[in-house]
Write a protein that binds this DNA or RNA. Sequence first.
DNA 1: CGCAACTTTGAGTGAATTCAAGTATTGTGG
DNA 2: CCACAATACTTGAATTCACTCAAAGTTGCG
Lengths: 254, 254
Amino acid sequence: MATGTSRVDPGPQDVAQIIRLICAIERRDALSQEEREVLASTISSIRAVPAGTVLVRAHQTINESTLLLEGFVARQYDQPTGQREITALHLPGDFLDLHSLTLKELDHDVVALTPARVASAPHECLRRVTETHPHLTRLLWFLTTVDAAMHRQWIAVLGQAAAGRVAHLLCELQARLALVGLANEHEYALPLTQMDLADMTGLTSVHVNRTLRKLRESNLADVRGGQVKIPDIHALRGFAEFDPAYLYMRRQPS
Amino acid sequence: MATGTSRVDPGPQDVAQIIRLICAIERRDALSQEEREVLASTISSIRAVPAGTVLVRAHQTINESTLLLEGFVARQYDQPTGQREITALHLPGDFLDLHSLTLKELDHDVVALTPARVASAPHECLRRVTETHPHLTRLLWFLTTVDAAMHRQWIAVLGQAAAGRVAHLLCELQARLALVGLANEHEYALPLTQMDLADMTGLTSVHVNRTLRKLRESNLADVRGGQVKIPDIHALRGFAEFDPAYLYMRRQPS
DNA sequence: CGCAACTTTGAGTGAATTCAAGTATTGTGG
DNA sequence: CCACAATACTTGAATTCACTCAAAGTTGCG
């Protein structure tokens, strides 16, 4: 699938990282010690891939889901006209392609936008979990419905003007990265090109550039050199009409 | 919740209709006789509502999912500016708010765009199913992931120009309505206003009107009087670059 | 150091919007 | 059955937002 990358069994630090990310998932819902172990045991090999790697090719049968350990991964449609539409962005801690448990094939590519490290969870193992652990199953199901909620939000945001779209995206990334400790209230690393941002917001890279300048001039957000700086997160959220409720980051009463 | 509508236990024709719609669901995956009965047994009362009824209000706790028997239902965000964004359209046979099993609250409204008839499936019953029937659970999960796949497609389509968006929507509705016998290759009833279509495609009603005229003049689709006529479905699909794969309408090998 | 990829800025174009007015179409009470 | 209101649809004109095309400036990497 991936060329030139080798799969490795998880080392001690890998396991520690996996556990840490599972803890992030646990912010969504409490797990018993046994459930935590069962979930961790579904994850087998780990691989590191360079930027641009196609993790899942459209119309290809999928046999495993993936826990993203490091890097940024996009779901993208490549139109015959050459233009690219990014419909979702995955961050470290995201469980990718969990929906592939029920949808064996996708009509789009899943691509690493930056160098990334991913851990695979074979469907075989996950399938077994769904047959023996109803509560864990509901958690996995929950994660896929949160993805759907993000999709809906993106659709709604695409109705706004350019500045609103970009600002909303910056807010969403701040909130999601903060969940896994990769952002604070004032800044975070965003190693994406303006072209990437353009394909996520449905704009051209030229217009994204102008929009970022406007946001900088109005002191709402400073995006430069792969770093996002936010002087006042509440001001930015107000401008973008961002309400993090749709991310369901608080613990769900199960 | 709904004003002036009364809930009624399903009558004989209702049961027949429910069974028919479950059969449509079965095009997705085979069910055993027992599973079919268990699924049907989760559905209790039925109610008819007039156009404009808010079936689920944003930020309200949800205690039941819904099988849509008749009518068109939209998921919509009402922006403070007064503008409305429709992120999904539900058709007869759709199982609504299945995701509310894991997401107790939504940030948007669910509204009947036309008079509608809905049957409710209490979470309590569905929850019990998820704890005893792994295969049925996977089918329900599957239905929510198909919703997510449709959302992704909508996001991608919003990157196209107006004519493409409208044409794609017409194609999607034709395919989905055909699944439940409400469309054939050449026409179907679409009792929505141009304003509704505008809020689904992210356009203004004025521009939807102009776009529909263009589609009519180029002989791709004739939308008038609540009726959609398609001289050549392949031509329209080609123009819209519509590929029904994302609807996952063929049976999934479980 | 030099190439490649990305970013920035300018000028002109075009698609979709807003504003505005007028025409069906539908439903309702007299 | 008609007059009237309300809603939906249609068309025109002017404007705006975002795009395309083009070129210069940066940055990073081999």
